[in-house]
Design a protein around this nucleic acid. Structure first.
Lengths: 216, 216
DNA sequence: TCTAGTACGTTGTAATTACAACAAAACAGG
DNA sequence: CCTGTTTTGTTGTAATTACAACGTACTAGA
């Protein structure tokens, strides 16, 4: 197994390269490859292993009662997935599918909670990392929820931009989406968003070009 | 300190009553009382202690750039608060205030991550509990986000009711809110919600009386 | 340079929603 | 039983939004 590529991933931050092989062994880590369209985890299943995407692309899908699946999230290489279900000991409410040929590293959560004696050196760091990952996602979800709780699209945009201004520390911000992505993030129609943005610019509230916005 | 009342709280689930005093000592735990309106944590602050509300009521407030504060959440006795900021090592974006005279138990997060040797017995359980608390909140936030992502209020209601039907295991469900609470949860106007509900009933999609709903 | 494809803004229309004001029902306390 | 209070439903209006259709600008590749 190629452990060097795992070092940058958030779960292993602060872990020394030479510790990694022992850590993976301790957590019963094993890699498994999946072909495009293959299902990694089924909804309803109780999962007791973390997945870390080593390479490829993995999608989190949710299917409603009628059976039509919607994309909930895309997982990027290095990221953990389904961790909220594993740590919460809850059955999956989503399905995880490979969107491209992918390699996944699986780690045993029970081993994580009850590590062997030797593991204690890096286990502390691993725990801190996992808590930080969950906490960070929490903050992200809470932020988006605040934007979506606004009553009008204009207020949603303002709430979002104000957050970005604060995070980026300047009243001129670069957004990580194109217009469609921004509309998805704010749960609105793209053309409706375009219309609102253009109106806000006319009203002198913001200025924008592409995905660069200035709050006035 | 009265430790018996702490046992039912989620962070201490599975901890034996006789272990609790040693645990509190190990984590540098101390109780502090606050008067109504007193500020526990200020926005911008970097907090390195968990708060557990022992008694009273505590509010999480967010103030926008204009200075008007809005209520983000109410903390109930036994619950942890601000844990996402502590675990994420992020400065608070909210202010925490006592809404009534309150008692809070503070625990040192650094001690939690680097426990003394003797602590190892219960430390494992504590870690699992904390991870579960964060994961559970994650799932809650994700669920609400799914509802709020729907384009129309009718779809938001359906998304929410379908979740409740699945959780409660029956097509007849009892909701934990009154109408105003439901409107707040779905980020909509109360009277608009009433109108949509009444239309859905006329259309034969649902039946309801007060906060008891049936999905048809 | 040309072209196909994608991203973005605009427009018009129908539907939805917020908001305010009010009516009806449910509730609590005397 | 009465009364004041709270909760819920209804109505009307103005504003907002979704949705579809289309034109324009930008991009990548031949």
């Amino acid at each position: 197994m190629e452990t060097a590529s795992l070092l940058p991933c958030p779960l292993f931050r602060g872990i020394a390269a030479e510790e990694l092989p022992a850590l993976l062994k301790c957590l019963n880590g094993y890699e498994k490859s999946y072909q495009r369209q293959e299902i990694l985890l089924h909804a309803g299943e109780l999962c007791e292993r973390f997945g870390i995407l080593v390479s490829g692309t993995v999608q989190i899908l949710k299917e409603d009662h009628h059976g039509n699946a919607t994309l909930v999230a895309q997982v990027l290489p290095g990221e953990l997935f389904a961790e909220a279900f594993v740590c919460g000991a809850m059955p999956l409410s989503v399905t995880v599918m490979a969107a491209a040929d992918s390699m996944v590293l699986w780690l045993d959560y029970r081993r994580f909670l009850s590590p062997c004696q030797k593991a204690c050196v890096f286990h502390r760091q691993l725990t801190a990392n996992l808590l930080k990952i969950l906490a960070t996602r929490n903050r992200f979800l809470t932020g988006r929820l605040e934007h979506l709780s606004q009553r009008s699209l204009r207020e949603k945009v303002l709430s979002f931009l104000e957050e970005q201004v604060q995070v980026q520390g300047s009243s001129s911000v670069q957004l990580p989406f194109d217009r469609q992505g921004m509309a998805d993030y704010l749960a609105a129609d793209r053309s409706a968003l375009s219309a609102v943005l253009s109106r806000m610019q006319k009203d002198g509230v913001i200025q924008y070009h592409k995905n660069h916005f200035t709050l006035l």
